[in-house]
Design a protein around this nucleic acid. Structure first.
Lengths: 214, 214, 214, 214
DNA sequence: AATGAATGAGCGTTCATTCAT
DNA sequence: CATGAATGAACGCTCATTCAT
């Protein structure tokens, strides 16, 4: 490092405390702490990215000491895993609620309900989605999380199939096309700034609906 | 170089070439060197991942000094960018060749040609694909690279549309569904170890073909 | 930490404390650690120069891990800043003590006290001085540090002025001439190996004293 | 390096030429080349500092290839040395011219001429001065360059001494005080943005003149 | 449980200098 | 003379994780 360069920049780092003004030690229920930490991490992951977010950042935002983080999560990667599980759980739940609101027999309407819930949930949470599913590679691509969603949709499609609502050669393949096709169209819209789910839903309904024919 | 070091009697910097076991200096055309470096990087990225691959690994594999790497790429990220461009170029070229091999007027067949080329190329190169497209986020999701591919397919679809081969409300949306649907199905197959493109192609042809109706 | 590394089965990052020959972890008061690090840095800066001293050198000498250095200083340049502040503080304090030892009314004697303290302190610490003030440029030449010293001397001169001990058109300019003139003569003596402050003091007393006339 | 961080930045580095558009080889007189290189270096040193200026920067500015630099200077430090010599030469010459313009016998006026020339030259070139004299340490403080200037002034003072114009116990010490005192006052003015030499000269004339008494 | 000082392997990048052409 | 590709030692800084208190 050159001399000139050295003193040009002035540091902003504060000298570590001399031990006086310590944070008061607060004991909190484990669930609350876990939740605080996960939320802090989620916000930071979204804001600055996974790698750019340090454990220091997380604990600073959560207002706890570094060691506390490691009481609740074995590694930094574990928070991500927890967030991912939570995300999928939420996604599937919302879709389930939407589907249940439709009469059992109307398979087409149930598919539309799924589609609309999926689009709405995805548009609303794509930033977190990006973060928690960022590091999927083929090794782990068929993850438990994606499988949860695909299975849900597959079952819906299979039910319609058995009821004669449509005729699909491969329910899983169909589910994958519907799910990933939806993703693709919504991603494109997001990238273009079109965040209103409505037009996306009608386009998708029309296009994807064609696949569900007898 | 530090100021103090500069005017001190003896520089602290070791003169390159003082050691015994020096690498023989080989001057190579820029293109060749670039290519060597990119290939070495690609193999390593696939083998151990992006982050786990160090620049040292790359230059060791390419058989050059570290500085040589930085002679051709400003940062490690740049190699990735270059690989990405090369990948997309290759993908599009192969698809184009396949399409051109089909008579102009047969739009359905041209689509199938695209599909088969896409599946084949993807299955053959998914590992590199995973690496070079790993860090796409919504900020840059609508990338130049994906757009190249989507545009190619959109044009194919639009041509068929104008010729009355099918009737699509939105060619770009259709292209996205076809492309991402294809990806989803192939990814699932890859994850399951079904690497033979043939069955994938027929399923996809059947399912996706349904969207292309009058 | 890289994304790929994170969710891979085994992290590539070596867990600290895996090795055999680990340094025993010693927790020390922040002030003590800071002081150790600063002293180690000062000695090395003097010995081998600023640039030639690496952070590795400093931590080796201080007997701590590298990370510990960065726990207390944001950058290498920060230690220099801290040393500079400490140096000026010390210089001013010594001069103040010497001045206070002289009766309030004897302004001439107070100036001589300042001069002798300044020469003595400078001769005793010029090596550290050289290091910490090495990279002053006009941009920051009028630094807080030099200003502390100049202000102290200016005030002494102004007090004498008001008491009618001498007549100066510009106290600050006078302070600068006295201070920098002192520096120049002492530097020349140091360069020539004449490190005894006594002859320097008498020459300076005589020469500089001429400026302090009614 | 993290994945997210990697592609966030886009490189600006141009791929090295493929060998076509090479610079035309121009053979120039050695002196001209030397001069071009020194001037380019000087501007860059002033602009971005010594360390921050790379040999690449210099050759880019001078419009020559890197190897050419090493034809004319053995090391980067050598350019600085050359600039320093040139600077001192210039300083002494200007002072000499100013002194010679004054009648031999008028020693007081000769000193004033020196002072005014020195202030004017220094104010006009302090940026280059800062750069070329930046890395003076006590080891080399009594440099050939400073000695040239001090000797010149010492001789002027000794001549006045012998002629009975003033009475100084130590001509060299006096020269040092005058020179460094001048520096200190001018530096302070520069730092404060007072770049007009006139007021500086009168203050200095008055203050420093007091030392030159019988 | 909670704290935060301490650890240290690791990596990307720089750049003066060399030398084949 | 001139060129610019090639070299490689060096270094500052990061940050997940540990553990004494």
């Amino acid at each position: 490092m050159g001399v000139a360069a050295m003193t040009a920049a002035t540091s902003t780092r504060t000298t570590p405390g001399t031990g006086r003004d310590r944070r008061p030690r607060r004991v909190l229920p484990a669930e609350v702490r876990t939740d605080h930490l996960m939320s802090a991490a989620a916000e930071l992951f979204i804001e600055k990215g996974l790698d750019a977010t340090t454990v220091d950042d997380i604990v600073a935002k959560a207002g706890v000491a570094k060691g506390t983080f490691y009481h609740y999560f074995a590694t930094k990667a574990d928070v991500l895993l927890a967030l991912r599980a939570r995300f999928s759980q939420d996604f599937t739940s919302r879709a389930a609620v939407a589907i249940e609101a439709v009469p059992q027999g109307d398979h087409r309407a149930r598919f539309v309900a799924w589609l609309r819930a999926a689009v709405a949930t995805y548009v609303a949470n794509f930033r977190l989605h990006d973060v928690v599913f960022h590091d999927f590679t083929h090794d782990r691509r068929r993850s438990q999380e994606k499988d949860m969603v695909i299975d849900q949709l597959s079952q819906l499609l299979s039910a319609g199939q058995q009821a004669g609502a449509w005729d699909l050669p491969d329910a899983r393949a169909a589910a994958l096309i519907l799910f990933d096709g939806m993703h693709g169209v919504v991603d494109d819209a997001i990238a273009a700034g079109r965040l209103d789910p409505e037009p996306l839903c009608s386009t998708l309904e029309q296009m994807l609906g064609r696949m569900l024919v007898r």
